[in-house]
Amino acid sequence: MDQPIVQIRELSKVYQHGDIEVVALNGISLDIGRGEFVALMGPSGSGKSTLLHIIAGIDRPSNGRCVVEGTDVGDLSETELAAWRKQHVGFVFQTFNLIPVLTAFENVELPLLLTGLSARERRDHVEAALELVGLADRMRHLPRQLSGGQEQRVAIARALVTDPTLLVADEPTGNLDAHSAADVLALLQTLNRDAGKTVVMVTHDPKAAAHARRMVHLEKGELLNGG
């Protein structure tokens, strides 16, 4: 394997709920290589989402290091993290999280507004991304005019339109019917295989995880098979 894109060393995350400490992650070490498709699996409360959030730069470790593409995410300030996220991370949510008042096109365009691209360049990028997820004909639709599967595909287009280092997905099929779920997983697989995208996906569904090239199991905040 080349130099890993994600290097996690002795990572711990402890939440403080009043007097009670909840250990979400306990001394995890894990490498993810460029172009991998990794499924993080485990039961509820196993810490898989927490790990994903730390990799994506929306949560911070209590101890240990999480280095993504040479940057230790834990060292960045709030503002630096925001700038880092827009450049390196495309996030796909379980609940799609499209902005309801914006069209599919405008939702996908949102992250591009943070780049220096011209309106024309942005349009080209958005059209290409929507084309890639098979929704070029739904650009002017609002989220409520789309099916769940279509919404999730718009969300995937939004996640990859900036060409991020990592595509991270938190239970991307959790709110979808079997048919739409299969479509979304096939899309993630295509993006990984054909476009070379590194994908990290949290799921508790073995059928979904089967689409990944590698599975990592967590339980009670620890890796089961050593990563």
Binding site: A82, K86, N97
Partner: peptide, 14 residues
């Protein structure tokens, strides 16, 4: 609130 969270994840600053 969730939209705010989403915008932040996309890279919009406070």
């Amino acid at each position: 609130t969730r939209e705010i969270g989403t915008l932040r994840v996309l890279g919009f600053r406070r």
